[in-house]
Design a protein around this nucleic acid. Structure first.
Length: 749
RNA sequence: UGGGGUAUGGCCAAGCGGUAAGGCAUCAGUUUUUGGUACUGACAUUCGGGGGUUCGAAUCCCUCUACCCCAUCCA
C-alpha cells in the first residue's frame, strides 16, 4: 500500500543491510510520573512497531531515576496503555532502577579515568558557572580534586554521609562547549527520598543523561528512538558510551518530532494541572488526551494505531488536526458497531390514527455493513422524536418534519404533522400526528410517498431512560496555553435521554451508533442496568449542521507575508580584490561571490585555474560540486585534487563529456580519487551526440508512451523533461542532453 | 545572541536531478429509509524568500528569513 518508509525505518533497514545490526532492539522508556497520553502512543507505535516490523523486540522500561516524582500508579497506567494498544513487551518490564548497582560501578570507573569528579558547588553556583549560550562557562574549583578524593567522596555520598545538594558527581567534558549539555553535565545527585522500587537502598540517583545511554547499552538496544528535544543530549549519550569504551554493538540515538494535536495540551505538567485543579474528573476523564481517557471515552486501540500510522514520522515540529483522529475512530466504528435509536432531547408525538402496538424487526446494521443481527423495535401511539427534527418554520433545505412535510420514522412508518401543541410560553410540548398505514418500512411500503429523511424515535412506554454524556473539545484555543483557554462547555450531561429497550436488555455491544448522532460507549465504570450511562465518542459527520451554520465570518483576508531580506555581511578587502578579479574573468557575480568569500574554495579554484585556462567552467564546478564536499571535510581530506578537476573540466570544454556525465565522474572521483580520464574510459562515458544514434531510442520511447505524447501535444510542456529523462536513462546518461532536447522538441511538434 | 534542528496546499506527509504520491479537511456531484457510509470529480504551473549551476532544480551551490530545542541537582 504505502510504499514510502519513514526515515527511522530507512535507518533500520540500512543498518540491517550493512550488517551493523543483526537484530533490532528498541525500547519505550517512559518516566512513571504521569499517565501516558496520545503522544506516548505515537512513541509506542514507533518503538514497538519498528521492532515488530523487523522481527526484533521492544523493551518496556520505566525510567525511574527520580524518586521524588515517580509513582507506582503510573507504572500500572503505562503497562495498561501498552497492553491496550496491543503490544507485547515480553517476559518482563524493565526498570532503570534495576541497573543502579551497575550504573554506580560505571560512575566509579569514570572517576578512576579522571573523567568524572565530585563537585561541591551549590545549585546556584553551578548554574552561574555554566555560563550562557553565548558565554563559555568556567570549571568549578572542586574539579581538580584527586581521583582518590573523588572516589572517597562519591562512596560517602552513596553511604548517605551528606545532605541533599551537598555534592554532585559531574562528567569532565568541556565547560566552554557550544552545546550547553556538554558543560560538565551532572551524573549523580543526592536524594534522600524513598524510591518506588528500591526504597531507601539508595540516596544517590543517576541523572537521565548518564542512566539512559547505559540502560540502553545494558539491554542491548540497537536503536534508541526519542523525541527531538533530546537532540542536544545525543553528544553526551555518545560521550558516556565512548568514554567507557562501550563501543561494540552499542546503541545509537535517533530523534523524531513529538506529536502535537490542536485544541489539546500534551505536556504531563499541564495534564497534571487539569487533574489536580479538578477541571477534569481524573486522568481517565473522557476529555483527556490520555490513553486512559480515550479508552474510557470509547476509542478503540485500532483507531489510535491507525491514527499514529497516518500522521507519519518526521523531524518537523507539527500540529496535527484533531479531525484526523476523529476520522480514524469514525472510520473504525463505522464497520463494527450496531445502529440503534436514541432520542436525546425528546419531543412527544401522538399518532392519533394509530391504536395498538407492534414490534418491528429492525436490522442492527445498514446495508453497506456486512454484519448480521436485528432487534425488535416496539411501536405505539405515543412516541418521542428529537426536538430538532421538527420545525414549525423551517429554513429552506430542511428535510425533517414540519407542518407541511412528512417524515419517515426510521424502520417504521411515515408520519405527518396535524397539530402543534404549545404551552403558555409558546414552547412546543407535543405534536399530534397521523401515520400512513401502508407506509411501513421495507417491502410493505405501498404508499408511494416520498419523504426527504428518516428520523430516530422511541416508543414512549417501552423506551428506557439513560444518561448520555456529550463531550466537546476541552479547549477553545487551537494552541491552548493552560486553564485560561479551557472550554466551559466541554461536558454536557443529558440525564433524560430515551433509548430503545434492546440496547439495555440485549446488550448487542458496548459501542453503538446512535443513528444520525454519533458513536457512543457504555461507560465502563458508571454503567449499570438500572442507570445506564453512555459517553459520546465522536459525532457523525453532519453536512446539514455545517450548511445551516450562520454564514461564516472568516473568508480570510490573508495577505501574503512579505519577507524581509536581512543584511549580507560585507566582504573584507582581500575578498573584494578576489571578487573583482573573478568578475574580470567573466564569472557570474554570484559564483564570484561564493568563491571570493571562501578561502578554501578560492585557493582550490586558483590552483585549478593555473593548470587549465577555463575560468568559467572551473568556477562553476568548484563553487557547486567542490563546495559541497568541502562542507563535510577539510581540503586535505579530499580524495581528488585541483589538477583532476582541471582535467575533468577540460573534457567538458572539448565536448567529450556532458555536464551530466561530469557529475557522474565527479561522484566517482569523490569516492575513489581516480583520474577523471580513467573513469571516463573505464566506464565508456563518452557522450553520444549523433542524432542518428539517439533517434531510434527516442522513437521507441515515444511509441511506448502514447499517453504522455498526447498530453505533451495537448500543451503539457513539462513532459519534455520526461522524454529527455527517458532517453538519457536508456543511454545510461551518455546521450548529449542538448541534442536529445532538440530532438524531442522536433519529434513531438 | 553561540550551538543544534526544521521549513512541500488549511493540517499531516512522500519525494533525494527528469510528469509535485497519499491521508485528513474543504467544495461539487452520484447512490442512500442515517443530511452517515460508499463512489466520482475539483483542490500546489509550484516546494519559506532571493540569486546561481544545469538542456532540465522541491532535490546541487550561495544567501537571507521564520519557527523549534539547549543555560533543572527534570526526563
Amino acid at each position: 500500500m504505502n510504499e514510502s518508509k519513514d526515515f527511522l525505518r530507512k535507518i533500520v533497514e540500512e543498518d540491517l543491510a550493512s550488517g551493523k545490526n543483526r537484530e533490532i532492539i528498541t525500547r519505550f522508556p517512559p518516566e512513571p510520573n504521569g499517565f501516558p497520553h496520545i503522544g506516548h502512543a505515537k512513541s509506542i507505535c514507533i518503538n514497538f512497531g519498528i521492532a515488530n516490523d523487523y522481527q526484533g523486540h521492544c523493551n518496556l522500561r520505566m525510567d525511574d531515576t527520580n524518586p521524588t516524582k515517580e509513582d507506582t500508579q503510573f507504572v500500572e497506567a503505562l503497562k495498561d496503555a501498552v497492553e491496550w494498544l496491543g503490544f507485547n513487551w515480553g517476559e518482563s518490564v524493565y526498570f532503570t532502577s534495576d541497573y543502579f548497582p551497575k550504573l554506580y560501578e560505571y560512575a566509579v570507573e569514570l572517576i578512576k579515568m579522571d573523567k568524572a569528579y565530585v563537585d561541591s558547588l551549590d545549585e546556584e553556583e553551578i548554574r552561574e558557572y555554566r555560563g550562557t549560550v553565548t558565554e563559555a562557562g568556567r570549571r568549578s574549583k572542586y574539579a581538580n580534586r584527586t581521583v582518590e578524593e573523588n572516589l572517597d567522596l562519591f562512596e560517602r555520598m552513596k553511604k548517605g554521609e551528606f545532605k541533599d545538594g551537598e555534592h554532585v558527581l559531574r562528567a569532565r567534558i568541556d565547560m566552554s562547549a557550544d552545546n550547553m549539555q556538554l558543560r560538565d553535565p551532572l551524573l549523580y545527585r543526592i536524594r534522600h527520598a524513598d524510591h518506588i522500587r528500591t526504597g531507601d537502598e539508595w540516596c544517590i540517583y543517576p541523572m537521565y543523561d548518564f542512566a539512559h545511554c547505559l540502560s540502553d547499552y545494558l539491554e542491548g538496544i540497537s536503536h534508541s528512538l526519542c523525541t527531538l528535544e533530546f537532540e542536544n543530549n545525543r553528544d553526551i549519550y555518545n560521550w558516556v558510551l565512548n568514554t567507557l569504551g562501550l563501543t561494540s554493538s552499542r546503541p545509537y540515538q535517533y530523534e523524531f518530532a513529538r506529536l502535537g494535536i490542536n485544541y489539546t495540551v500534551m505536556s504531563k505538567r499541564k495534564l497534571l494541572e487539569l487533574v489536580k485543579g479538578g477541571q477534569v474528573s481524573g486522568w481517565d476523564d473522557p476529555r483527556m488526551p490520555t490513553i486512559a481517557g480515550y479508552k474510557r471515552r470509547g476509542y478503540t486501540p485500532e483507531s489510535i494505531l491507525t491514527f499514529c500510522d497516518q500522521i507519519g514520522i518526521a523531524k518537523a515540529n507539527s500540529m496535527v488536526d484533531v479531525a484526523q483522529l476523529e476520522f480514524c475512530i469514525r472510520d473504525d466504528l463505522n464497520t463494527k458497531v450496531p445502529r440503534v435509536l436514541c432520542v436525546l432531547d425528546p419531543l412527544k408525538v401522538t399518532i392519533e390514527n394509530y391504536d395498538g402496538f407492534e414490534e418491528i424487526d429492525a436490522p442492527y446494521y445498514p446495508h453497506d455493513v456486512p454484519k448480521e443481527g436485528s432487534r425488535k423495535l416496539p411501536f405505539s401511539r405515543e412516541i418521542y422524536i428529537e426536538r430538532d427534527d421538527f420545525m414549525e418554520n423551517p429554513p429552506k433545505g430542511y428535510f425533517r418534519l414540519t407542518p407541511n412535510q412528512a417524515v419517515r420514522l426510521r424502520h417504521a412508518y411515515i408520519i405527518s404533522c396535524k397539530e402543534v401543541i404549545k404551552d403558555s410560553n409558546g414552547n412546543i410540548t407535543e405534536i399530534k400526528a397521523e401515520y400512513y398505514p401502508n407506509s411501513k418500512s421495507g417491502s410493505e411500503d405501498t404508499s408511494g410517498i416520498k419523504v426527504k429523511s428518516a428520523i430516530q424515535w422511541v416508543s414512549a412506554t417501552e423506551a428506557k431512560k439513560v444518561e448520555v454524556r456529550l463531550y466537546d473539545r476541552l479547549f477553545v484555543n487551537e494552541a491552548p496555553e493552560g486553564i485560561e483557554d479551557i472550554n466551559p462547555d466541554s461536558l454536557q450531561v443529558i440525564k433524560n435521554a430515551l433509548i430503545e429497550p434492546a440496547v439495555i436488555t440485549e446488550k448487542p455491544d458496548e459501542r453503538f451508533q446512535f443513528e444520525r448522532q454519533g458513536y457512543f460507549y457504555a461507560d465502563p465504570i458508571l454503567y449499570t442496568d438500572e442507570k445506564p450511562v453512555f459517553n459520546k465518542i465522536v459525532s457523525l459527520k453532519d453536512s446539514w449542521a455545517k450548511k445551516s451554520e450562520t454564514s461564516k465570518p472568516t473568508p480570510k483576508p490573508q495577505a501574503k507575508k512579505v519577507q524581509i531580506d536581512g543584511e549580507v555581511v560585507a566582504m573584507n578587502e582581500a575578498q573584494k580584490v578576489l571578487f573583482d578579479k573573478y568578475l574580470e574573468l567573466r564569472l557570474n557575480s554570484e559564483v564570484a561571490n561564493t568563491l571570493a568569500r571562501d578561502e578554501h574554495l578560492s585557493k582550490f579554484y586558483e590552483e585549478a585555474l593555473s593548470i587549465l585556462n577555463s575560468p568559467v567552467n572551473l568556477a562553476n564546478i568548484v563553487s557547486n560540486e567542490v563546495a559541497r564536499e568541502l562542507k563535510q571535510m577539510e581540503v586535505s581530506e579530499l580524495k581528488f585534487s585541483a589538477k583532476q578537476i582541471a582535467e575533468l573540466v577540460k573534457m567538458i570544454d572539448n565536448a567529450t563529456i556532458s555536464n551530466k556525465i561530469a557529475k557522474q565522474v565527479f561522484e566517482e572521483m569523490v569516492k575513489t580519487g581516480e583520474n577523471p580520464t580513467q573513469i571516463v574510459e573505464a566506464k565508456g562515458l563518452v557522450q553520444i551526440s549523433d542524432p542518428a544514434k539517439i533517434l531510434p531510442i527516442l522513437d521507441e520511447i515515444i511509441a511506448n508512451n502514447p499517453d504522455n505524447v498526447a498530453k505533451f501535444k495537448a500543451g503539457n510542456t513539462k513532459l519534455l523533461g520526461f522524454f529527455v529523462g527517458q532517453v538519457l536513462k536508456a543511454t545510461k546518461g551518455k546521450g548529449n542532453p542538448k541534442v536529445v532536447n532538440e530532438l524531442v522538441g522536433k519529434r513531438l511538434q
